[in-house]
């Protein structure tokens, strides 16, 4: 029996879905890790990106940061962070994933603020808006398409990287794949394929969903 048939059989076994460490549990773990990481990254990246963008400073920093994180292997952070004060469990995984979600969020928040027309800003100030009112009523609404684009990139990337948490036994859908490798390709080939299919499916689904959201919040005139 080849791996492909094995995969169909594995996915058709209801126990593989409902087991204590079955697909449902792993999927929820995966979503929880991803959600935590994106939330953490937004809380860090958006205020900084917006503040830097409004002042028009630190554009170089944003570029350097995103280049620097490119060179850091996810696997390295996933193994190093649990050995720090963060301790073992979900926390270091969430932090590790968040590190890679920060650059796209930061860059888009920065660009979103830079792209606000200076005339619009002047007009709003001339109408007597305070800095806070300017941010809430004018700058943020204008930056929404950029923030949405960043959120989409960051989220899809986090969902993809969360699969690697399995390499350090950190939970998520990747565990299905690593368990498959654990029992060897001959016996676990179907499970490996099934795990890969679930991970890829989730990533592509998230990408499609967030692309739709991004289109909804982007005015027609600004769509590319």
């Amino acid at each position: 029996m080849n791996s492909f048939n094995q995969m169909i059989n594995w996915l058709n076994d209801p126990l593989n879905w409902t087991n204590p460490d079955g697909i449902v549990t792993r999927l929820l773990e995966h979503l929880r890790l991803s959600f935590g990481a994106v939330l953490l990254a937004c809380l860090v990246a958006w205020p900084i990106g917006i503040a830097l963008g409004r002042r028009g400073r630190g554009g170089g920093l944003v570029v350097v940061l995103s280049n620097a994180t490119q060179a850091i292997p996810v696997v390295a952070l996933l193994t190093i962070l649990p050995l720090t004060a963060l301790g073992f469990g979900a926390r270091p995984v969430i932090v590790a994933l968040a590190v890679f979600a920060v650059p796209p969020l930061l860059a888009t928040a920065y660009t979103g603020m830079r792209e606000v027309d200076p005339d619009v800003r002047d007009a709003a100030r001339g109408m007597g808006l305070s800095r806070w009112q300017l941010l809430r009523g004018v700058e943020l609404p204008l930056a929404v398409p950029y923030l949405a684009a960043g959120l989409r990139t960051a989220t899809v990337q986090v969902i993809a990287t969360a699969a690697l948490a399995a390499l350090v036994n950190g939970g998520g859908l990747g565990m299905i794949v690593s368990a498959g490798f654990g029992i060897g390709i001959a016996a676990g080939g179907g499970q490996i394929l099934a795990g890969g299919l679930l991970i890829a499916g989730l990533a592509l689904l998230a990408e499609a969903l967030l692309a739709w959201v991004q289109r909804r919040v982007t005015p027609a005139a600004r769509q590319t």
């Binding site: 399995a166 390709i185 080939g189 394929l193 795990g195 890969g196 991970i199 890829a200 990533a203």
Partner: peptide, 18 residues
């Protein structure tokens, strides 16, 4: 490019081995 790296390796390994 959107397919996560782990999934990509998982797709290839059963056919080409480790």
């Amino acid at each position: 490019y959107t397919i996560p790296s782990l999934a990509l390796f998982a797709f290839i390994a059963p056919f080409l081995g480790t």
